[in-house]
Design a binder for these strands. Structure first.
Length: 289
DNA sequence: AAAGCGTGGAC
DNA sequence: TGTCCAAGCTT
């Protein structure tokens, strides 16, 4: 793995996508919104909601002043609507603790609701040019292959993995930030999960996995996510009904969305507990205000 | 620490 | 068609 930096950085300079939350024109708030939306969600599906979100709430204070239910409605079909709630809570915290400005320090970012290690590092790096290890699923896969010689990384990041990423991080802030986004982009565009295009990879000649003949994944089975009949599906149905209604919806409309009563009631309870749904009187439900 | 949490596109 | 997967976080 002798110097990976130059080929990856050169490749990035030529092949990088021009995304709205990238580059000098993007505000830290724009980066922050994008990172929330991109958690477990492909870039293509984030583009339109991201633009609409920033048009409606150009600053954290604008979002913080809106009802949480409006954030949930605006989130639309992005999935994992609790992210909308957490983004709202994070915006509120930014207003209360940081004067309305997205903080640039990792520790301050990490303390925000819905912000974990990845998101804190990403915002610090992409919005403020700070030097941080940014270990997302793309970067982990690139390193697993290029250095580890295996097709997929482990379920959770290991200490060794983090140490490797730290060693590979360029010493100066600006290059480190570019390296972070470049390795992510390489994983997203070339070193993909399904069908990597090793012929287009700038570090193919140094890749341990390719050198070994691209051996098939040989680790523990990775569990798929069940869907049909799950609470997730039930909750999704209920949320869709509420999003598509202008005001409160009658209980009968919720029943129509999910006839089985035990599961429906359980999901309704959990949605209320999560703050995604508000009971209105005895007979109807609405997005929270 | 393992499981729960949405959604839709690609193959 | 069903399965896999997509810039994770929380409990």
């Amino acid at each position: 793995m002798s110097d990976l930096h130059a080929p990856v950085l050169d490749w990035y300079a030529e092949h990088r996508r021009d995304l709205p939350w990238r580059g000098a024109g993007a505000s830290p708030w724009s980066v922050m919104v994008s990172e929330f939306m991109l958690q477990q969600t492909p870039v293509a599906r984030v583009l339109a909601p991201h633009a609409a979100w920033l048009a409606r709430w150009p600053t954290p204070a604008d979002l913080a002043a809106a009802p949480t239910g409006e954030a949930v409605r605006m989130w639309g079909r992005l999935g994992y609507p609790r992210r909308a709630l957490r983004l709202h809570a994070a915006a509120t915290a930014v207003v209360e603790r940081h004067g309305g400005e997205v903080p640039d320090a990792y520790a301050d970012l990490l303390a925000l609701p819905g912000v974990g290690d990845y998101t804190a590092s990403a915002i610090a790096s992409f919005a403020f040019g700070r030097r941080h290890v940014v270990l997302d699923t793309n970067v982990r896969r690139v390193f697993a292959r290029a250095v580890g010689g295996v097709e997929f990384p482990t379920t959770a990041p290991t200490k060794a993995e983090r140490e490797l990423a730290t060693e590979l991080l360029p010493p100066d802030d600006a290059t480190a930030a570019t390296w972070a986004v470049a390795t992510m982009e390489l994983g997203a565009l070339v070193c993909t999960a399904r069908s990597p295009e090793c012929g287009a990879c700038p570090i193919a000649d140094r890749c341990a996995w390719l050198r070994a003949g691209r051996p098939a994944y040989d680790g523990p089975p990775r569990r798929g996510q069940a869907w049909q009949g799950t609470d997730r599906q039930c909750r999704g149905r209920i949320m869709a009904v509420l999003r598509d209604a202008e005001g409160p919806v009658h209980a009968a409309d919720v029943v129509a969305a999910w006839p089985e009563s035990t599961q429906r009631e359980r999901c309704l309870e959990s949605l209320v507990a999560d703050g995604l749904v508000a009971r209105v009187g005895d007979e109807s439900y609405a997005l929270p205000s």
